[in-house]
Simulated assay, not measured.
Amino acid sequence: MPRAKLTVRLPDSPWIRDISTAYPDATFRVSSVLPGSEIAIGVVELAAANPVPILAAIDDRSDIRDLELLWKHDDTALMQIETSNPSLLVPMQRAGVPVETPFVVEDGRVTWELTTSADRLSTLGEAFDERGIEYRIEHVRAVDARRAERVLTERQREVFLTAIDAGYYDVPREATLTDVASVLGVSKSTCSDVLHRAESAIAHRFADANLERGPESR
């Protein structure tokens, strides 16, 4: 099963395309979205030097049915928006590809990370082509579910869970490394080495799944 990262140039009609190109330094982070055939509802975080005129421009749009400001603080605002133009999500719906959130829109472009079948990914590309939507595939990587589950070896998992149960990771710490090693019946140095490898594996898996890293950081 492939996992793909795409950068898509949005079509002209959606509000988020026009507003984000009018304010290219603003960032729109869509944290959740409820697509429909005639409307779409989303929760969007706006980050800009001055969000006020941008909020006003969004509210003035004819395709915005409702804008509810949830909170605003300095250069950030969170809003729930209902739009009568869900065309941004139509290709995803046609291809049967779930919309993963959060995703970011900047200067008329959206970056999506998608996990789906190869056939559905191909159908999505066809849907973009039919509508004349420009897109670039940043990468496609195979996802092996069995490998994804094997973050830790059995030994690393045993030691790591023992450390958790003993309170080694509690704040404040309820057990020392010596305590964990004693429960396992191993030396302190062995326990430390196995725990360090387990923590490294978990940290790298978290970073790969959640953080945007350039080639220089790998």
Rank of each mutant, 00 (worst) to 15 (best):
R29S: 15
I64M: 06
Q93N: 08
L152W: 06
T190S: 11
R150C: 11
I64S: 02
K5P: 01
R65S: 06
D170H: 12
S32P: 00
D107E: 07
I41H: 02
S87R: 00
R157G: 00
G214T: 09
I58R: 04
I81Q: 02
M1V: 09
A26K: 04
G167V: 06
V180E: 07
A198M: 11
R29A: 13
L34I: 12
A4Q: 09
N210G: 10
V44Q: 03
L124Q: 00
N85R: 00
L70Y: 03
P102R: 03
S187D: 07
D66I: 10
S122I: 06
L124N: 01
A175C: 08
A95W: 05
P172S: 07
L177E: 08
C191Y: 08
P91M: 03
D66M: 13
L88D: 05
P2V: 09
G36F: 04
A118P: 08
V8I: 15
P35M: 01
V110L: 08
V143F: 09
A175Q: 07
D74M: 07
T176R: 04
A142I: 12
R120P: 05
R65T: 07
G108K: 01
E134G: 04
R65G: 08
V43H: 05
D18F: 05
R205C: 10
N85P: 00
I58P: 04
S62L: 14
S189A: 15
V99E: 06
K188Y: 13
T162Y: 06
S62C: 08
E212C: 10
F103V: 00
G125Y: 11
V44E: 07
T116W: 02
V159F: 10
A77R: 04
L6M: 13
T7V: 14
S182Q: 14
D144C: 13
Q156L: 08
L6N: 01
Y168W: 05
M92Q: 06
V44C: 06
A145V: 15
V186F: 01
A209N: 11
A181K: 02
N50A: 10
D144L: 12
A148P: 07
L211C: 11
S20V: 05
D12A: 07
H204D: 15
M1I: 10
F103K: 00
L177Q: 04
E212N: 14
F160W: 12
W15T: 00
L161F: 11
R197Q: 15
F206H: 13
V52N: 13
T116K: 04
V104T: 13
G96M: 05
P215F: 04
H196W: 14
I64E: 00
G185L: 10
F28Q: 07
A127W: 03
H204Q: 15
P35K: 00
H73V: 15
K188F: 12
E216M: 09
S192I: 12
A175R: 09
G108R: 00
R147C: 04
G185F: 09
K5D: 03
A181S: 07
L152G: 01
L152S: 01
D129N: 05
T162C: 09
V30P: 05
R218K: 14
F28W: 12
E174Y: 09
P215S: 07
S31V: 14
L34A: 11
Y169M: 06
S117M: 02
A148E: 15
V151W: 09
W112F: 11
W71S: 09
S217F: 14
G132D: 04
E106C: 03
L34G: 03
A48Q: 01
L177K: 01
D25M: 13
P53W: 03
D74E: 14
T101A: 12
D59Q: 13
E126N: 05
D107Q: 02
